[in-house]
Design a protein around this nucleic acid. Sequence first.
RNA 1: CUGGGUGUGGCGCAGUUUGGUAGCGCGCUUGAAUGGGGUUCAAGAGGUCGGGGGUUCGAAUCCCUCCACUCAGACCA
Length: 478
Amino acid sequence: METDFVKEITPKTEDFSQWYVDVILKSELADYSPVRGCMVIRPYGYTLWENMQQLLDGRFKATGHKNAYFPLFIPESLLQKEAEHVEGFAPEVAWVTHGGEEELAERLAVRPTSETIICNMYSKWIKSWRDLPVLINQWCNVVRWEKSTKPFLRTAEFLWQEGHTAHRTAEDAEEETLKMLEVYRDFVETDLSLPVIKGRKSDNEKFAGASKTYTIEALMSDGRALQAGTSHNLGQHFSKAYDITYLDQDGKLKHVWQTSWGVTTRLIGAIVMVHGDDRGLKLPPNIAPIQAVIVPIYGKQTEMVSEKVNEIYSELKDKVRIELDNRDEYTPGWKFNEWEMKGVPIRIEVGPRDIQKQQVILVRRDTGEKFAVSEIELLPRLKTLLSEIQENMFHHAKKFLEDNIREVDNFEEFKQVIDEKRGFIKAHWCGNIECEKQVKEQTGATLRCIPFSEESVSGRCIACNKESDTVAYFAKSY
RNA sequence: CUGGGUGUGGCGCAGUUUGGUAGCGCGCUUGAAUGGGGUUCAAGAGGUCGGGGGUUCGAAUCCCUCCACUCAGACCA
C-alpha cells in the first residue's frame, strides 16, 4: 500500500540504491551538480547539517575544544613529510598548478584532510609543556578525488569537522582519542537515533599515519555497514615528521602526542539509509529542520480554519520548529505525502470538525499513528511526542542492528551469512593480516572493528582456525 | 580504474531496428471550482534530442570520439 502514496520513489525492496537516490532528490536534501562527483546540498539538507553541527559543536566546546580555520591549500612539500600519510592519500589528492595563467613554483594540494598544515602550525605554536594540551577543531570542506561517488556517502568534496589535538603524554592522547569517540557515539545515538558499534580498526584498516584508529560502525537497512565516525591516536608519527616539540618540566625536549577525529556529511546518508522507508525520509526530531507541520483542511469554512491555524502557529513557532503549510494550490492529501516524504516527524491536521471539538489531529511519521489531542494539551503533547519519536526511532534501529549481528564459527557459515543475510558477523580472528585479507577476498566482507565491549572468550580464527581470544565484527560495507 | 546500463522540454518515457525535420504522461503558468490521504475542467508556456566530429540532399535515428549519471567490483569518510 505504501507505494501508492509517493509514486516517484522506487520501493526499497525493488532497488535499494535507486530508492536511496530517489529519496535524496525528491525530498530536496541534495541535487547533482555540473561538477563531476560533487553534489549541491540544498537548503533542506543544509539546515539538517546545521542542526547536526550545532549539537556536535556544543559537545566539542563542553570538552574544552575551540574552533579555528586553516587554509584550503597545502604546499606539496609540506604534505610529503609523513610518508605513510602521503602514500595513503596520494591517489585522491586534487592539485592546483596555476594561478591565473602562471604556473606555480610549487603545486598546492587541495586539502584531503588537514593534519599536515595543522602540524606545521603546531610546531610554531608549541614550545613548552605549559602550552599543552592544544585542543582545536575545524569545520570545513575537504576534497578527495574519488573514482565512484554517491550522494552524501562518497563525494569528491564533502563537509566535515576535523579535531586536531596535541598532548604531553601518550596516555593523555589515548584518553582524548577515546573521549572523542564517545562524544561521537553519544551524538549519533542520542541525536541521530543511529545505534553504533564502538571499536578499534585493524592495522590494515586504520587511518594513514595513525597508531590506532577507533571507529563507530552503523548498519544500514540493506545490511551493509557504514563507518560513521573515526578517532585516531596519531602517536608521535606526525610530531616527529613535522618537528612538534616542547620543553618538559624535566628540562628535556620531547615530541608531542597527537590525535585527530572527524565526522562528515556522510552521516546524513546514514540517517536516510537507516530510518527511511518507501514513503521517503524519516528524520529524528532533534535534528529535523521541521519538527511539526500544520496542514489546514479548509472545507467550506476557509476563514474560520485559516484563523485557527494561524493562532496555533504563532503560539507554537518559538517553542518547536514548526511550519504552517497554507498553500492553496495543493490538497491536504497531497501535502500529507509531501511532508511524509520529507520526513517531518509530526503532522498536525486542523479542519472544521476539529475546531468544533476544540482539538487537532496529530499523526506520527515513525509509526503512522493518528490521534486527536485537545487544543489545550497540544504544546506539552508535542514536546513529549517529539522525544518519544526520537527514542522510538533509536530502538527500532537498535533492534534491527541486534537482529543482524550473527555469531559464526566456521568459514562456510560465514560465507553463507554474507551472501544470504549480510549484516554484521561476529567471529574470532587471530590478528593476522593475511587472515583478514583472505576473508575480504573470498567473501567481500571487511573487518569493520574489534569491539570494546566483548569480554575475551577463546575460540578459533575464522580463517586459519588458530586459537584466538580476539573477536571482530565483519561486514560488507559502503 | 575494470565491466554492464542509461542519456530526447523540469521529471518519467515513446520515437532509433527500416534516416524525411519531435510526441505522450506528470509537473509548470493563468482562471474557475474543489479541499479529512497525490482533486477536476479549460486555456497556455516550454526541446540546438548529453558534447564534438563524420556519412548523407537530409541525422534523435548510421559511424567515430569525448563526457556525465547509474549499477556491480577494486580504493576510500
